[in-house]
């Protein structure tokens, strides 16, 4: 498409003259153009929580500052548990390890139980979502079972496995699986009729339909289930480990309580919270990545 070139040279009016001013050209500046926006964005995200954190710690200090207080104040906590905070990686054998190793042991249990729950949960969710009879048969049972608190499964699994390690993993599995099943089933049931019709016209086979239509279409729901599941697993592992003992953050907390090391417990809680947050974000990130790659 061609436009007639516009003629800017208007004939000069007699007796008048115009003066042209050149505006100074903006110089490219890495600091101003690249670094500054990122810094501003980071500051708006980071400053408010940091300020609130400082306020909360100050309130905590005021509330627990007196020498008769039952709970440690922040300053007392740091002086009591400095070794724990400063050296997360030490290992003196047995249960005398840094917090990293306890968290690591807990994460291993969660990873195993959770991966099993994800595989079984998605498979069962697809079954319930696809088959009206599977849904009628299994859904009521699942709705009852999912309300059973995680720890209530522990005695039964101890009786079945006769060992703490597989029992803890089973508790994670049984805790995480319900939201995965239910969300996957909803996702599969909500696949638009149009997509099914496209698959039928093209004559996709069962496996092709599963991989090319069902999984991508239900992925947002599945990842919602996976995110709820990972949160619940992390909730359950601390409680389960308190009971089964051994290396793990749950037993570490229980052991600290028995030794009246309240400051150590608080440090462990901070770790538990941060790791739980990271797990949630990790699954969310994988979900976003999968949505983009699919």
């Amino acid at each position: 498409m061609s436009m007639p070139a516009r003629n800017f040279e208007t004939p000069a009016a007699p007796g008048r003259s115009a003066t042209l001013f050149a505006l100074p050209r903006r110089q490219p500046d890495v600091l101003r153009d690249r670094v500054k926006p990122i810094a501003v964005a980071a500051a708006t995200r980071l400053v408010p929580p940091l300020v609130m954190l400082a306020v909360l710690i100050a309130i905590w200090q005021l509330a627990a500052g007196s020498p008769t207080s039952a709970l440690p104040s922040p300053t007392k906590l740091v002086s009591d548990s400095w070794e724990l905070i400063a050296h997360p990686f030490y290992d003196r054998g047995g249960l005398d390890k840094g917090l990293f190793w306890h968290i690591f042991a807990s994460l291993q249990r969660v990873a195993l139980g959770y991966v099993l729950a994800a595989v079984a949960g998605i498979a069962l969710g697809v079954l319930i979502g696809q088959s009206i009879w599977a849904m009628r048969g299994l859904d009521p049972i699942f709705q009852v079972l999912r309300t059973v608190p995680p720890l209530a499964w522990l005695p039964i699994s101890l009786a079945a496995f006769r060992d703490g390690q597989p029992s803890a993993i089973f508790v994670i599995f049984i805790t995480a699986i319900w939201p995965i099943i239910i969300n996957t089933a909803v996702g599969v049931r909500n696949i638009p009729e149009d997509y099914r019709n496209v698959a039928r016209v093209v004559r996709l086979g069962g496996l092709e339909y599963f991989a090319k239509i069902m999984l991508p279409a239900a992925a947002p729901y599945i990842f919602t289930g996976l995110r709820i599941g990972i949160g619940l697993s992390w909730l359950a592992i601390v409680a389960a480990e308190m009971l089964i003992g051994g290396v793990g953050i749950g037993f570490f907390i229980w052991d600290a309580w028995n030794s009246s090391l309240i400051s150590d417990i608080v440090v462990a809680l901070v770790y538990v919270g941060l790791v739980g947050f990271c797990l949630d974000r990790l699954i969310a990130l994988i979900g976003r990545f999968a949505a983009r790659a699919a």
């Binding site: 638009p192 149009d194 997509y195 019709n197 496209v198 039928r200 016209v201 093209v202 004559r203 090319k212 239509i213 991508p216 279409a217």
Partner: peptide
């Protein structure tokens, strides 16, 4: 259904 009778759906139904 089959590809010998391809359908263009009302709301495009692209994946």
């Amino acid at each position: 259904p089959g590809p010998d009778r391809a359908v263009v759906f009302q709301n495009h139904s692209l994946l």
